[in-house]
Nucleic acid binder design. Structure first.
Lengths: 233, 233
DNA sequence: TGCCGCAATCTGTGATCACAGTTAGCTTCC
DNA sequence: GGAAGCTAACTGTGATCACAGATTGCGGCA
């Protein structure tokens, strides 16, 4: 059986906090960005060696990610990116629609000129990237994330933000890996359209419309992915 | 300065999983049950000694709890139960109202005869405990938690359940510690009434009423606690 | 040529040691 | 009697070692 064991070439770490924190951010970023595929195996020693550390910080980072469901350590002593069944993916999609939709509606009510300007800038960046014929997928993924979190941050709730981050940590490997493998989803423009609608709604203070725009963005990607049937069940 | 450093007398551990998992469950249960007060300090070596282990499993457990915001490790090398400002508590209350309310509404739609029977049983147990003049607070806290999670579990969403558990992990020290110190909140019967209303709503399939009952339960406790001004700010 | 089995390697988990930074308490000096 | 200062104990973090269990790959047998 051929197993994906991704390489760790560009092993850059953040420069603040304990080593454990840095490794955690490193792995979390890569998970959200879809740099790991569901089913990928990690090894403490391989990661620590690639990062030039002992295994201790990696151990703690993996342990945290496992607690959040972003990684799994099986009873057979293997660290894997969780495989998600279609039913689970539908579940997480529904929860995301509810929670991220709520965050968007709240952002609509709490928006300040500064946060609105940030959202506008992120919307423009993502739109520009998407409309390029040969879009850099890594950049597009990052820009999409930047737009969403600009909105969610505008809601002004640290609790909500932490919860949404956890959701992205779990959904990232599926969504963004899919986007890497099916870049035409970008060109179809569903996300651009939803972002534009969300931005307009926030500008005009229509909270329900903002919620609906985010919901349709999430549902659109989810439907696309489920139709590809790359998931179990 | 006198600091609360809680004792670890009844150091019982669950009996499945790795040692780290067991320590995690042990600490998480105590946090949710309000056995720690905000500001309490923990020490890896003290906990590990009380549990009869090396510090490694405790380290991993604390690391996970810190990642979830249930504990804090300060840059000055101290592990503490986070102090929460009033604004933060209001924030988490609002998020709980939204998410746990959504879970209750979903439970209403998804309820089966079995899950309904479980909810009924938990409601009765909590009501019986609350109506005793000298209620055992630890039992009452556990019964309240059992009722809420019976409802949330009935929603059938693992994602939602994990998110709510994280919220309780963070809010538990404040809510249940307050209940221990102000047991009259139990006797006032706000919770019993809300639970009864929630149960009735689920029985009759009124999802919005179920949401509102849970919301009022959460808001009631929150208002009570904020009025006591035991929080910073 | 195909399959079974054994051995070497690699896995996560737990314990122990080392270390720099913090805290606490005692002593000493004013 | 009180405050300052120093030392001893304790803190979390990181590295290293030990170990049991899983995996892998090679060699030999059918």
């Amino acid at each position: 059986m051929l197993e994906r064991v991704p390489a760790y070439t560009d092993a850059m770490l953040a420069e603040t906090g304990t080593l454990s924190d840095r490794v955690y951010r490193h792995l979390a970023d890569r998970l959200i960005a879809g740099r790991f595929a569901p089913g990928d195996k990690l090894s403490l020693r391989a990661v620590s060696e690639a990062l030039g550390l002992s295994i201790m910080p990696v151990r703690e980072a993996v342990s945290r990610l496992a607690a959040e469901g972003a990684l799994e350590v099986t009873p057979k002593k293997a660290i894997t990116v969780p495989l998600m069944r279609a039913a689970q993916f539908r579940d997480i999609t529904q929860v995301r629609v509810e929670i991220e939709g709520f965050a968007a509606a709240t952002a609509c009510r709490m928006a300040t000129p500064e946060s609105l300007a940030g959202i506008e800038a992120r919307e423009r960046e993502f739109r520009d990237l998407s409309e390029q014929p040969q879009a850099d997928l890594a950049q597009a993924v990052a820009a999409n994330q930047a737009f969403h979190f600009a909105v969610y941050r505008a809601a002004g709730s640290a609790e909500l933000l932490a919860i949404i981050e956890r959701l992205w940590l779990r959904a990232g490997p599926i969504i963004n890996l899919d986007l890497r493998e099916n870049p035409e989803r970008l060109r179809l423009g569903g996300a651009v359209q939803a972002h534009r609608a969300c931005l307009a709604a926030i500008r005009e203070g229509r909270a329900d419309a903002a919620r609906e725009a985010i919901a349709s963005d999430i549902r659109g990607a989810s439907t696309f992915i489920l139709s590809r049937q790359r998931l179990l069940d």
